[in-house]
Simulated assay, not measured.
Amino acid sequence: MVGPAKNSNAATATNPTKKLHLSPDSIINLDHGDPTLFEPYWRKLGEKCTVEISGSDMMSYFSDIGNSYQEVTDFLRSGLYKWAGDAYDFDKDGPYIEIVTSPNNPDGAIREAVVNRKEGKLIHDLAYYWPQYTPITRPADYDIMLFTFSKSTGHAGSRIGWALVKDKVVARKMIKFIEVSSIGVSKESQLRAAKILGVVIEGCQDSASENFFEYSQCLMAERWEKLRDVVKKSQIFSLPKYPQEWCNFTSKYVESHPAFAWLKCKEDTNCEGLLKAHKILTRGGERFGVGKEYARISLLSQGEDFNEFLERLSGIKTTEQGIGTT
């Protein structure tokens, strides 16, 4: 652990947690889903989630020093695979791999497999299958399921994800791929993730502790309520509607509050361009295979960015339709 510098200049050091006020000319980057909105929750827990690592700990590449090296070029034969596009348009014969993203990115919809043939393998990407984003209607019970630390708790910087795999042969191949492509996963990151996930579990089991998922669900619901209020008053924008469903985690009916808003502008309007003119960076619909009237907007930014986004969005008038059109 590093303490403050013991010199006369220590008082002039910058406070990294201090938030600067956004000026009207500042750019708000809502293009990517960087989950910094959960920072206040983890900050108030203080040392409860701290992991201390000495300089002599975990210096080896390997957790198991008996593992062997194998050349990546001998293992990764990418010529065996090629991208085939949207599963709804897939009409080829033979083996395939279908990736099912549920809730879907960018629109937050719950998805199921589409192709459904015997010669196929399914991978379910469940990065956003957490109570703050969607009702947990049933246990996830697929052959290969991918999860990520970043979207579950907000700790994107640790770069940790995990998979639940039923087939031992497939699981061993996945482990081997990680081994030869990166010589394993950072031990420090694994320790931090284990510590934080332990705190999350404790919060779910102990009524005296604040439940992270209840906190984050309320936060996402509040953001969606504010955004819908702005969009409702607008004559330019619209948002998807999500039905209320019974959530087994919270034991109540809730609607989805996706990490991204799938915003739609009036027809023939370049939504990404319109928002960019107001210094709001988003990801246009054409990058997701749909029209330019759509834009994906991250709702995971810090509070000041989100509030400034709402203020700018509410100020966009119908007379500005020409901005960003082609």
Rank of each mutant, 00 (worst) to 15 (best):
K173Q: 12
Y41P: 08
Q217T: 07
E112T: 00
Y81I: 14
L275D: 04
Y294M: 04
K241V: 10
A13T: 10
I160N: 01
T250N: 05
L197I: 07
Q190G: 09
D57Y: 03
S181Y: 06
N248F: 03
G3E: 14
H278N: 13
K187I: 08
P4E: 09
A5C: 11
E245W: 01
A163S: 09
G289E: 09
Y69G: 05
P103R: 06
K264T: 05
G289F: 13
K166H: 12
R172Q: 15
K317Y: 02
W262M: 02
Q132R: 02
A193G: 05
W246N: 07
H21A: 15
N270L: 11
L22T: 03
Y215L: 04
K266F: 00
V200Q: 13
Q190H: 04
L164S: 05
L275K: 02
K121G: 01
T134Y: 07
V290C: 11
W83S: 14
A109M: 09
R172T: 13
A208W: 03
Y294K: 04
P243A: 06
E245R: 15
S102L: 00
H278A: 11
D57M: 08
I183W: 03
L37Y: 14
E225N: 14
I316G: 10
M59Q: 12
E214Y: 08
Q70M: 13
G203E: 12
Q70E: 15
V230G: 09
D93W: 03
G55V: 02
F38P: 01
E188G: 09
I175N: 01
P103L: 05
V200M: 11
K166A: 12
H257P: 00
I196S: 13
Q190S: 07
A13N: 07
K292A: 15
I178E: 09
A10K: 15
Y253C: 05
L76F: 15
Y133Q: 06
V180Q: 00
C265Q: 03
E255V: 02
S207D: 12
F147E: 07
M58P: 00
A193Y: 07
V2W: 08
V165F: 09
K317F: 02
N211E: 06
E272T: 03
G94R: 06
G203S: 09
I160R: 12
E222M: 06
N104D: 15
N67I: 12
V199R: 13
N29Y: 04
E293C: 10
F147V: 02
F177H: 05
I183V: 08
I236M: 14
A221N: 06
T50P: 01
F237R: 03
L126T: 10
E286R: 04
E311A: 12
